[in-house]
Amino acid sequence: MNHQIKPDENRLQIFHEGRKRRIFVGELTYNNKTNRYELAYDKKYARSKNAIPIGPELSLFKLHHESEKNKLFPSLQDRIPDKSNPAYEDYCHSQGISPSEKISSSC
């Protein structure tokens, strides 16, 4: 029997892309019950000597961060181009996502 894992639309894994390797940084999730985003750094990444925080408000000294209600962390707000941006389709293809994928209105 072939079991396929259904992607969780409320969960995004974050990686640091280097020249020679890809390092797991952590996971961003959206909690439907609280209407908040949650960032959980990978413990191994956070403790590594070359770790870089995702943003100034997302310190590596704290492994778990929670956003304000209905707001994405400021450092992540401009990471995904707007659909009206002419480069949006190219960006989606480079990241392996469909340009027609639904974007949450709470961002």
Rank of each mutant, 00 (worst) to 15 (best):
N2F: 11
K102F: 14
K83I: 01
N32C: 05
D90S: 15
I5Q: 15
S100G: 01
Y41G: 00
K44V: 07
H16E: 15
P53S: 08
M1K: 15
S59I: 09
F15M: 10
F73C: 09
P53E: 03
K33D: 10
T29N: 07
H16Q: 15
K33H: 05
K62P: 02
H93N: 13
E66W: 01
S104K: 07
E101N: 09
Y41R: 07
E38L: 02
H64A: 02
S67T: 06
K6N: 10
Y41S: 00
L63T: 03
N2S: 12
N10G: 12
G55A: 14
A46E: 02
H64W: 00
N50P: 00
E27Y: 01
R79I: 07
C92T: 05
R11E: 04
F73Q: 10
S48A: 12
S59Y: 12
I23M: 07
N70W: 00
F15T: 08
L60V: 10
Q13A: 12
D8I: 08
S105D: 12
S98E: 11
K102Y: 10
K102S: 05
N10Q: 01
F24R: 13
P56L: 06
R19I: 03
S106R: 04
C92Y: 03
N35K: 13
S100I: 15
N31C: 04
F15K: 06
S75H: 00
Q13F: 09
G18S: 10
P99V: 06
R79H: 13
S98C: 08
G26K: 02
I103F: 01
L76V: 06
I52A: 04
N2L: 13
K43T: 03
K20R: 08
Y91D: 03
D8Y: 11
I103V: 15
N35M: 06
H65S: 04
E66Y: 04
E89R: 14
N35Y: 04
Y41L: 09
N32Q: 11
E68A: 12
Y45D: 00
N10L: 02
L72D: 02
L60S: 00
K43I: 02
S94Q: 13
F73R: 06
K33R: 10
R47G: 02
K102C: 05
E66I: 15
F24H: 12
R11C: 12
F24M: 08
E101V: 10
R11P: 01
P74K: 14
E9V: 12
I97Y: 07
R47F: 09
T29L: 10
E9L: 05
E9A: 07
C92G: 11
E66P: 00
S106A: 02
H64D: 02
N2Y: 14
K71E: 09
F61D: 15
L76D: 08
L60N: 08
E38I: 11
Y91K: 04
K20M: 06
I14E: 04
C107D: 03
H3L: 14
P74H: 15
T34N: 09
T29A: 04
E27S: 08
D42G: 02
K20I: 04
D90A: 13
S105T: 06
S75A: 15
H3F: 07
F15V: 14
P86E: 09
H64C: 13
P86R: 06
D90Q: 09
K71N: 10
P86V: 13
I97E: 01
R19K: 07
F15E: 14
K83W: 05
D42Y: 03
I80Q: 11
F15Q: 14
